[in-house]
Design a protein around this nucleic acid. Sequence first.
RNA 1: GGUUCCGUAGCUCAGUUGGAUAGAGCAACAGCCUUCUAAGCUGUGGGUCGCGCGUUCGAGCCGCGCCGGAAUCACCA
Length: 608
Amino acid sequence: MLSLLPEILLRKKMEIVLKEKIKEAVKIIYNSEVKDDLIQIQETRKDFKGDFTLVVFPLLRFSKNTPEKTGEMIGQYLKDNFDAISGFNVIKGFLNLEVSDAWWVDFFGKLSLEKNHLESCLVSDPETILVEYSSPNTNKPLHLGHIRNNLLGYSLYRILSGVGHKVIKTNIVNDRGIHICKSMLAWQKFGNGETPESSGMKGDHLVGKYYVLFEKNYKIQVEKLIGEGMAEEEAKNAAPLMRETRDMLLKWEAGDNEVVSLWKTMNSWVYAGFDETYRKLGVDFDKIYYESDTYKVGKEIVLKALKENILYRNEDSSIWADLTPEGLDQKLLLRSDGTAVYMTQDLGTAVDRHKEYNFDKNIYVVGNEQNYHFQVLKALLRMMGYQWSDGLIHFSYGMVELPEGRMKSREGTIVDADDLIKEMQMTAMEVSLELGKLSDFSEDEKHEIFRKIGMGALKYYILKVDPKKNMTFNPAESIDFNGNTGPFIQYTYTRIKSVFRKAEQMGINVDNALYEGAQTGQKEIELIKLMRNFSETVTTAALGYSPALIANYCYELAREYNQFYHDFSILGESDEQVRNFRITLSKVTSEILYTGMWLLGIEMPERM
RNA sequence: GGUUCCGUAGCUCAGUUGGAUAGAGCAACAGCCUUCUAAGCUGUGGGUCGCGCGUUCGAGCCGCGCCGGAAUCACCA
């Protein structure tokens, strides 16, 4: 259980103190001891007057009175005995408590002094957490699905390290296996020595081209065999290309020079391509694992478990686990020809990692299509006696679909990551140029801004959705920069920055704007209330692995600020105290927006 | 068929220990720039929260049963 540090207590203080006061009230008025969980305090809904609301229904057993009367009694007690409460009203069974403006302003004063708004979110018991994300295959370029994966993984890293954990970003590269051999074989057969240099193609795209070429020719062979009267399953196995691929995999595992050399060359092309895409996405890794290393560890583990009779060998000498006692199925761990499967290497990777980092948690950012795989992985490790398998967490996120349905390589509907990134930045450029606010910037500066806006739009669009859910990626909608979007939040931020530039011109010191005794309005209080929720949102996001909570929070704060900005003049305010108060309000808003977006891996431009 | 997940406005999504009259954005329509950035703000319309039963003072949220959809159950990864 998470214990609260003093910083978060500050933010939660009102609820905690209120609870104590209400317990006191019930004790004095009704002579009863109340348990904590019967005192339900929530923020008052906007359509009612008040700041905090006590749900009185659970207390009726003590008052033996109507909800209205009970609310009245407790409300009156609080008003009389608690300075911060300036008034109350009772509607049905809800006691709405009004907190004095002075309390809010005082709270905001403390908030504005925080150097880093994440301090209030720090956990008291930091853990060592590995976050594995991206996990590409080296036979194809990255696509939209990988983008969601990378953005979620990276944001998770920011959030978890932001609240104080020691986080290691890892990537496991799927650089071996039958699928890799397919591209290699196709290149050997049809490539005529083509390289990224000779073709001018990005390496990962070039290799992907040969993978597609393989599938195309393989399909023709299979159809031909079926036409000759062979059953489909048999034809798939008997097709010459498939046999050659399997041979190649055997040679690879045996360390055949020619095959290994080709493999190294083609992989290096792919890595160069991936590095470029990662750089554009703004993600990176502390440690990269290669399955070409870990599958060996996996094999050893499997063979050891076989000796211990945890696994069994089939007649054809393939090795299996019987997971039926766990409610799962039989699982193959080594093929009859002795080669490893996906699960084998994942076993090896997990054991390797635990040896190296002794992690508390190992979070796998992997799509929900692999839910079963991770259920099996955990069960296997448990079976084999690895206690730490409890720390394996499958961060299972939903698929990205297009308005017309799933992406299908067959139908050419795969959204390529590089294309998409480029398109978003182009759109940002078009919109910016049309609005024409950046005419005094150099070309380089402008492009840096377009990049931030384009990526901000893309990242926010994807991260605002609950990771667990499948999402629809609507291209037309994703390039809309109005409403609940990344650019909307960036825009709010740049507006504040713009105010500060103006303030500077006017000779006003933004960092030290004193506002003692400033009169506040309802809108200002609303903003303070929202800002108060930041640390709790981040904490919940960290515990629930949900960047979406932070995204939606940022949106809400930006929307609230924009209303404030629209309704009130900041620098034009004649009362200096009020003006300074609004300046500080703007400053803290910009800080929180910046930090929130930072947790999502989204950069903020200073102007747009 | 087994397992897991999902179903909220025309569309995309919020709605976290069960709480008041279920919220945003997009799209449509009507307004607001001599003012700190209109990528903004305001307003209007739009809902049997898939259906039914149950638990509860109270259910979008919890339980059971249906209906609809997705994923998975490979000697693929």
